[in-house]
Amino acid sequence: MTYTPSRSEFLTIRGLRSHVRHWGREGAPKLFMLHGWMDVGASFQFVVDALQGDWHVIAPDWRGFGLSQRSGSDTYWFPDYLADLDAILDHYAPGEAINLLGHSMGGNVVSLYAGARPERIRKLINLEGGGLKSSKPEQTPRRYAAWLDGLHTPPSLRTYTSEAEVAARLQKTNPRLSNERAAFLAQHWSAQTTPGRWEVLGDPAHKQHGPLPYHSEDVLACWSAITAPVLWVEAAQTDMWSWMGGEAEGRTELDFRLGHLRDVERHILPDAGHMLHHDQPEALARLIEQFLQS
């Protein structure tokens, strides 16, 4: 398979050396793509390959993921992602209203950002970034205690004996991945750190549960402030219900949350799981371009 060529660039974003991947022609309409948890910007390669139009796609690695520098802290604070995104957009598109896409964690970030900076967004695309089950106040003491306990035993990530073993691990998580796509992702998702050992390019601190409760009311206030048209895409075989309290409760809650968007177009991709940009990149690319060009 022939992949659309990309180039890497490194910027200092809020004190951290950050990696940004580019596809397409400089000067073409910009489309920013933000990846999810334990993923990398290169994850959008298959969608980029399927795009038909003339685009300049810009996909950073979030802090502590991929080739971007780790923060050195024991917990990653969600607002830092918003501040990093703000700095990235100021660098590449100062004063412009931009097209912004995010998957999963990235979808949550871009939706919060679009509410905080509505004037910066031309069109917003959220791929399965529906959020978490809302916390209750009485859960807060236990959450703080769990966080404090976790600091005594910092999390770690397993290592692998080869890129092929990394690819097999990706296919175990997502059986829809072809051998070729799994091998491509393994090259960008991991690196050889010592002889005979490959390590996932993600700071283990990302596995540490943060102390702050998830308040859906705060999130929905941001969603309600979004003025740009929104494309919401979910997968028919999604597993996002696992972090929204189960399918029945999650479906009801997600529909309620999507109702807070002023202008939303909703789609469900068949034969796709949560990594829908890997499972159905051609169908997803068509939806993206139809939405951006409408």
Score class of each variant (00 low, 15 high):
44 F>L: 09
38 M>L: 15
31 L>W: 08
25 R>V: 09
33 M>G: 03
27 G>S: 03
23 W>G: 07
14 R>M: 07
43 S>M: 08
30 K>W: 08
26 E>D: 11
21 R>Y: 01
43 S>W: 09
6 S>A: 12
12 T>H: 04
32 F>C: 06
16 L>V: 06
14 R>Y: 12
23 W>N: 04
36 G>E: 10
20 V>L: 10
23 W>K: 10
12 T>N: 13
12 T>A: 01
21 R>K: 11
31 L>N: 02
11 L>Y: 03
31 L>F: 14
26 E>R: 07
48 V>Q: 08
12 T>Q: 11
39 D>M: 03
22 H>E: 01
29 P>V: 12
10 F>D: 00
35 H>Y: 06
20 V>I: 14
26 E>F: 06
44 F>V: 07
39 D>L: 06
16 L>N: 10
41 G>Q: 04
22 H>S: 05
25 R>M: 04
20 V>D: 00
38 M>W: 07
31 L>K: 01
16 L>I: 06
40 V>Y: 11
21 R>T: 14
11 L>M: 09
34 L>M: 14
39 D>H: 11
19 H>R: 08
33 M>S: 05
12 T>C: 01
46 F>A: 15
29 P>S: 07
13 I>N: 04
14 R>Q: 12
44 F>N: 03
35 H>V: 00
17 R>Y: 01
30 K>G: 01
43 S>E: 05
31 L>V: 07
38 M>T: 11
41 G>V: 08
46 F>D: 08
14 R>V: 06
17 R>L: 06
20 V>Y: 05
45 Q>Y: 14
40 V>M: 11
23 W>V: 06
16 L>C: 13
6 S>P: 01
8 S>D: 15
7 R>L: 04
7 R>D: 07
28 A>C: 10
14 R>D: 14
7 R>V: 13
19 H>E: 13
25 R>D: 12
26 E>A: 13
23 W>R: 02
46 F>V: 05
28 A>K: 13
47 V>P: 08
46 F>W: 10
22 H>G: 00
23 W>M: 02
10 F>H: 10
17 R>W: 00
22 H>I: 04
35 H>E: 02
42 A>P: 01
12 T>Y: 00
28 A>I: 15
40 V>A: 15
18 S>E: 08
35 H>R: 04
29 P>R: 15
18 S>F: 03
41 G>A: 12
18 S>L: 01
43 S>I: 02
13 I>L: 12
30 K>L: 12
30 K>C: 05
46 F>N: 06
37 W>M: 03
6 S>C: 06
27 G>T: 02
20 V>K: 00
24 G>V: 08
20 V>A: 01
47 V>T: 13
42 A>M: 12
34 L>Q: 11
38 M>S: 12
34 L>W: 04
34 L>V: 14
41 G>D: 04
12 T>P: 00
14 R>F: 03
44 F>I: 08
43 S>V: 04
22 H>W: 10
14 R>H: 07
45 Q>F: 13
22 H>T: 05
